[in-house]
Structure formats: C-alpha cells, structure tokens
C-alpha cells in the first residue's frame, strides 16, 4: 500500500503534500476562506458542523492534488478516526435542549451528533458508494490509523482509501491529518 497525497489542516495552516498553502485567515474563518478559494461549488458546506467542514475540506484538497477527479464507483473507502468524535456538535445540541423552558431540539444540529456523518458528506460530494467508517480512538495514534486503513482493503472491491484523523474538540479548535492510500 502506498500514500499518494497528504494534507494537514490546523487553525493556522494548511499543508498539502508538504507545501504550505497561502491563506490569510485563522480558526473557523480559515475554513471558509479555504472553501471560497479552492472549492466554491458545494453550498451544503455552510450547513455542515465543524467536524464535517474540516474533513470535507481535507478531502477536497487531497482530490485537488490527485488531479483527475475520482468520481462514483465503490472502489474508494473513507475511513476516518478521532478522539472527540462529534463532541463539538454534541455540545451545541445539548445547549439547545438544556433549558426545558427554552427547548429547541433542531434536527439540523442533531443529525451531526454522529461522528460518521463527515464520511457520508465526503461520499455524497463524490458519489462514492465504497465503505465509510468512523473509529474512535483514545489518543492520536498514527500506527493505529494505518492499521485501521488496512482493514478496509480486506474488502476485495476497495482499491484506494481516503483516511486519517479528523478532530474538533471545540469551536475554533480542529486538526485534520488525512491521506489517500492505494492498494
């Protein structure tokens, strides 16, 4: 198995295949800037929770680096992991229901209280029908992430995978380290 492209996103930097990309903003404003500059044609982005935004943009940058856009099919898996899962959105949802007198359980917030939704957002964007999976880990552990990715390749239809770590402990605080690997 080999890694073909890598991306790292922090609140202050975006590094694609080892190259620092020039952006001005930081925090969640950086994500909006990345979207406007490099994507621009997927308004659903603005409805996503922070975890999905970060994972989605990491995927978009990896696919930009890959060039010839990989669309459709069932040969590409999306295997993501993190420590906090959907906790950032979970807290937002909890706030909506905390006060019984000001009670507003919003379905558009609730739907993102599942950490695998980010894998679905990436699959939808690209029309990929391959495996999508989310594993929760106690700590960032590159060896475990690499091992989890290999499990997807035990499916004979999987030829490549978009995989790695995507983590949003709180608003303005996020980290993605994702890559494309091929069989």
């Amino acid at each position: 198995m080999r890694t073909t492209h890598k991306v790292e996103i922090t609140p202050t930097s975006v590094v694609l295949d080892g190259r620092l990309l020039p952006f001005r903003e930081s925090g969640e404003a950086l994500l909006t800037e990345v979207y406007r500059q490099r994507v621009g044609d997927w308004p659903k982005f603005f409805k996503m929770d922070l975890l999905s935004k970060v994972g989605f943009l990491a995927a978009e940058l990896l696919l930009e680096a890959e060039g010839d856009r990989h669309r459709g099919g069932s040969d590409r898996a999306v295997i993501l992991s993190g420590r906090s899962g959907s906790l950032c959105d979970d807290r937002d949802y909890q706030q909506l229901i905390a006060d019984p007198d000001d009670f507003y359980p919003s379905p558009s917030v609730f739907v993102y209280t599942l950490p695998n939704i980010v894998t679905g957002e990436i699959a939808i964007r690209n029309g990929w029908h391959g495996e999508t999976m989310y594993y929760a880990l106690e700590e960032y552990d590159p060896a475990a992430l690499a091992a989890y990715a290999t499990l997807a390749f035990t499916d004979p239809q999987t030829r490549s995978a978009l995989c790695g770590w995507v983590e949003c402990p709180a608003h303005e605080d996020f980290y993605a380290n994702m890559e494309i690997i091929e069989r």
């Binding site: 906090s84 899962g85 599942l114 950490p115 999976m133 989310y134 594993y135 929760a136 880990l137 106690e138």
Partner: peptide
C-alpha cells in the same frame, strides 16, 4: 470520549490493548 470509556472497560478485564471503537 468513546475511546477513553472503552479503555476503562478493557482495563476492567485486565486487558491493556487499545480497544477498537466503531461509531458508525
């Protein structure tokens, strides 16, 4: 955190391997 809770469960059984937590 699911991973933290899972580790406690495995350790209850004396198992020190990092558990896999699937949340799909």
């Amino acid at each position: 955190h699911l991973g933290v809770s899972a580790r406690r469960i495995a350790r209850h059984f004396g198992n020190e391997r990092m558990p896999i937590v699937v949340s799909n």
